[in-house]
C-alpha cells in the first residue's frame, strides 16, 4: 500500500552552513584598482572574496533560526552544521536538525558544485531511510523561513555575473556596492545588490530582487567575528521579506575551524550516524 510516511517532504537545510562563505567574503582592494569596466571590477571583488576564504579546511557551528510572521508570532528552529572545504569544487556540508522536535535527528548532506547540479541526500531517522532528493528547488523556503535554499548555499564565483556600482557607507563603515546576477538555473532572483565592507570585505547588507525585478528581501548581517586571524563570519543574519512583512533571524554560535573532519564524515552512511 502507499507508505506515505516515506515521502514526507521535510524542508532541508542543505547548504546552510556554506553561508559562511558569503559572510566571510573579502576583497583585495588593489585588484579592484586595476580592473577597468564595472563588470571586471565586480568580478575581481568576487574572485578576491572567494580567495580570501580559501584554506578554512572545515567548520562546525550551531544555528538558531527565529521565524517571525507579520503578527509577530515566533517559531524556532535549531540545527548544527558541518562544512568541508573542497578545493576546485563546491563544498560538502551536513546539517543536523534539533528543533522542532518532530524533525529532531533529520539530517541533510549536500555536495555542492559550481556548474553541474548539487547532489543532495536527506536522512529520515524514524524510517532509517536515506533519500536522494532533487537540488533543483533553489528558490523555495528553507524550513519555512525567509531564507531560500539559494541564499544559504555554497557561494561560488561562477554562480553569478557581477557589476561594480559604486561606494557608499553602512553603519559608519565604507562599503563597495556590487550587483550580482544569478548565472545558475531556477533562481528566484533577477539581481542581488550587496554592500561589502571596504576594509574587511564581508557583506553587510544584501537586497534581493524577485523575478519581476521588484525588491523582495533585505538581509542585514552583523556581529562579525574574525576566526583564525583570517576568516570573517557573521554572528547574526536578519532577513526581512519586504513584500510579506515576515522576517527570520539566524544566529550562529560555537564556530570551530579545522576540527579534523574528513571526506568519510560526509557520506550517506555518515548521515545516518551523526547525532
Amino acid at each position: 500500500m502507499i507508505s506515505i510516511a516515506d515521502g514526507k517532504t521535510i524542508p532541508t537545510s542543505h547548504k546552510l552552513a556554506s553561508m559562511l562563505l558569503l559572510s566571510a567574503s573579502t576583497l583585495v582592494a588593489s585588484t579592484v584598482a586595476f580592473a577597468q569596466t564595472a563588470e571586471e571590477k565586480g568580478l575581481a571583488i568576487a574572485v578576491e572574496m572567494d580567495q580570501r576564504n580559501e584554506g578554512f579546511v572545515d567548520t562546525t557551528s550551531k544555528m538558531k533560526m527565529i521565524l517571525r510572521n507579520r503578527a509577530g508570532n515566533e517559531s524556532t528552529r535549531t540545527m548544527r552544521s558541518m562544512v568541508l572545504e573542497v578545493n576546485g569544487d563546491g563544498d560538502k556540508s551536513m546539517t543536523i536538525f534539533d528543533e522542532p522536535a518532530d524533525v529532531k535527528g533529520t539530517a541533510s548532506l549536500t555536495f555542492s558544485h559550481s556548474t553541474k547540479p548539487d547532489e543532495q541526500w536527506l536522512y529520515l531517522p524514524a524510517l532509517k531511510r536515506v533519500k536522494r532528493i532533487s537540488s533543483k528547488n533553489k528558490s523555495g523556503p528553507f524550513m519555512g523561513s525567509e531564507f531560500a535554499f539559494e541564499d544559504i548555499s555554497s557561494q561560488e564565483v561562477d554562480k553569478y555575473t557581477y557589476k561594480f556600482i559604486g561606494e557608499d557607507t553602512f553603519n559608519g563603515r565604507d562599503v563597495f556596492v556590487v550587483e550580482s546576477y544569478p548565472a545558475y538555473k531556477n533562481s528566484g532572483y533577477t539581481r542581488l545588490v550587496s554592500m561589502i565592507d571596504k576594509e574587511e570585505y564581508y557583506p553587510h547588507r544584501i537586497e534581493y530582487y524577485d523575478r519581476k525585478g521588484a525588491l523582495l528581501k533585505i538581509l542585514v548581517q552583523s556581529d562579525h567575528q574574525k576566526y583564525l586571524d583570517k576568516y570573517w563570519r557573521a554572528g547574526t543574519m536578519e532577513m526581512t521579506n519586504e513584500q510579506t512583512g515576515k522576517s527570520t533571524t539566524l544566529s550562529w554560535d560555537n564556530y570551530e575551524f579545522k576540527t579534523g573532519l574528513s571526506k568519510a564524515d560526509f557520506s550517506s552512511k555518515a548521515l545516518k550516524r551523526f547525532r
Binding site: 500500500m1 502507499i2 506515505i4 515521502g7 517532504t9 524542508p11 518532530d102 523555495g140 519555512g144
Partner: peptide, 29 residues
C-alpha cells in the same frame, strides 16, 4: 503537496488501481 510553511504542512493523495480486476485503493495522508 508540500506547503513549505512554518507548520511544514504536507499531503499525499494516491490511488492504486489493479489493471486486472479493476479494484482501487484510495488513500490520503
Amino acid at each position: 503537496f508540500a506547503l513549505n510553511d512554518e507548520q511544514s504542512t504536507d499531503a499525499l493523495i494516491g490511488v492504486i488501481s489493479d489493471l486486472d480486476g479493476g479494484a482501487q485503493t484510495f488513500s490520503i495522508e
